[in-house]
């Protein structure tokens, strides 16, 4: 990873966190669907990134969002979870012929069908962990499933829109 791509990813993360805490913090469609757009930064990191930095980055981003949400630890726990999960999931759904060295798991490069199987379960796993911890001890597992399902759908739709609007066709080249 050269310095240029590093800066690109850093800026992407920063912008997404700002959008998350300034615009999306109080958004909840119909009271159930929340949007965790900052996860797009974790999902878009290159395929070849090492597992340890990936987990650390996820934890860091989760904690940053937590500080502004006053939900210390909840985002961090859930984001760390999907950071840990990501390489295994990528391995499971690898396309025939595997990934190339410069593969980026985003919409433009991999196509809609692949991206759906990649992002949707990850977002759902995040939402499930998030709402489970949030509602811990106050019952209502159905409510947790309900919120997780709709939140992951909303986040997915917004992630698709952001990629269609703002991601360049081929970064670097």
């Amino acid at each position: 990873m050269n310095i240029r791509t590093f800066i690109t990813y850093f800026l992407l993360g920063l912008v997404l966190i700002c959008v998350q805490i300034l615009l999306l913090k109080n958004l909840a469609l119909f009271g159930v669907a929340m949007c965790f757009l900052y996860l797009l930064a974790i999902l878009s990191l290159p395929v070849t990134i090492d597992h340890v930095p990936l987990i650390l980055i996820s934890f860091g981003m989760g904690l940053t969002v937590d500080i502004f949400y006053d939900t210390i630890g909840i985002h961090a726990a859930a984001a760390t979870f999907i950071g840990f999960l990501r390489p295994y999931w990528l391995k499971v759904i690898s396309p025939t012929g595997g990934y190339t060295d410069s593969s980026e798991p985003d919409l433009k490069e991999m196509g809609m069908g692949w991206y759906f199987t990649y992002a949707m379960p990850m977002l759902f796993a995040f939402s499930l962990v998030f709402f489970l911890i949030d509602q811990w001890g106050t019952g209502g597992f159905f409510q947790v499933l309900n919120k997780s399902f709709f939140s992951s759908i909303l986040t997915f739709v917004l992630a698709i829109l952001v990629q269609l609007l703002f991601f360049k066709r081929r970064r670097g080249i």
Binding site: V52, I55, L56, F59, G73
Partner: peptide
């Protein structure tokens, strides 16, 4: 191990 440690830290903070 890193995953477990960070999760424990997060739960402790919660």
């Amino acid at each position: 191990l890193l995953f477990v440690i960070l999760e424990v830290v997060a739960v402790w903070m919660i």
